[in-house]
Write a protein that binds this DNA or RNA. Structure first.
Lengths: 206, 206
DNA sequence: TTGCTTACTGCACGAGCGTTCAGTTATGCT
DNA sequence: AGCATAACTGAACGCTCGTGCAGTAAGCAA
């Protein structure tokens, strides 16, 4: 019989997930044992198997739900394709930076632990990842077609921009010199320049 | 007594290193066992301890010599600081892309396996890494001071550019649509735009 | 041939791994 | 109060891990 939400079992399920995310982000999937995760949660190792069939599924579920959440969060605030490419790019970059800053651990894991996925699981995560990359690719293509972005190679620019944007999660630390919104603003400028948009960012003394 | 170079022991030492690099790049440090490395080399696990005091040192030596090689390779072809910032940046980017394409495994390891280093070893690798980032930071600062680069934040631009450039190692595959030199050329254009250089890349129909 | 050194094997050690499961306790419904 | 079920323990399974070490085979100088 299904339990009411808010029951102790459900809370533990969430605790397991979060302990796993924290530990894997810190030490890496292969270096973290089920016993370590259990200790963090405050249970014995065997109890974890009430919430996951095995260690591999634990990783897969973290990565899969991260990617799905990323995609559906974007769907929620994606602008229509009738909007100007510059504005669409700005929206995408702001979304990406904020999301990646607020969920650093998940993001870190989901591109560090790809090689610890079983082949089948890897294929599925790659599919979702490509879907997300295509969001940016489509915006850049649209801008190029409309002549407002000027790039030598759209595919390379897409990969370069994704790497640049995602990189924020490797150096951002809470309480640093810049807040999330400052950083997002900087990345928006940089992305527009990278895309070859005709947007002078600053008044430049010639 | 020291052995002559080219002896069988030295060959094995190199084979151990290369097997370790290949396997760690593929599966991750924690997921690779000494027995796997030994099998790849064609010896028993115990024999590895003739070439490394322990597993941790094996990782550290790979990362340290990679960083030192990266830095000294750059020193060999670094332009003087009297050269124009645009030309210095071009030189740096071309070097970086070529280097990262030709040594994908080492590069991949050296930013994926940082968290598997012991604290002392981590500090040392971070020091070398920062030295390399400072190379780019100095070029960008110089360009900003001379007014040929226009950036909102030099530090953020440095981190963004490094992430963008290093990202090439995650998607480049031998025999793809573009060769290393094509890719380097694209990254040079993108870097100049990112730095806000006044260099129109293409003739643009307005 | 003898003797020294290098390169390596083969086995062992204790520890920890992922996972299973019979048994125990806690919880909430009737 | 009684009972079903959920939540969890604690011990065990077979296995692999990093590492140490006595012993051995091969190469070479004298």
């Amino acid at each position: 019989m299904a339990r009411k939400s808010g029951s102790s079992g459900e809370k533990t399920a969430i605790a397991v997930r979060e302990a796993a995310i924290r530990l894997i982000a810190q030490h890496g999937f292969a270096a973290v044992s089920m016993r370590q995760i259990a200790r963090e949660v405050g249970v014995q190792a065997g109890a974890l198997y009430l919430y996951t069939p095995d260690k591999q599924s634990l990783l897969f579920d973290i990565l899969k739900s991260h990617m799905e959440d990323l995609l559906s969060s974007w769907q929620d605030e994606a602008p229509g394709s009738d909007m100007a490419p510059e504005a669409r790019l700005e929206r995408f970059v702001r979304f990406h930076i904020r999301y990646h800053i607020s969920r650093q651990d998940r993001v870190f894991i989901s591109y560090m632990e790809l090689r610890n996925l079983s082949p089948d699981n890897f294929v599925e995560i790659e599919r979702l990842r490509r879907l997300y990359e295509d969001v940016l690719g489509e915006i850049l293509s649209d801008g190029a077609a409309k002549g407002v972005f000027v790039m030598e190679d759209i595919r390379v620019t897409t990969m370069a921009m994704i790497a640049m944007l995602t990189g924020v999660s490797t150096w951002f630390r809470e309480g640093g010199r810049l807040g999330p919104d400052d950083i997002a603003a900087h990345y928006i400028s940089m992305s527009l320049r990278l895309a070859g948009a005709h947007v002078p960012m600053l008044a430049v003394a010639e």
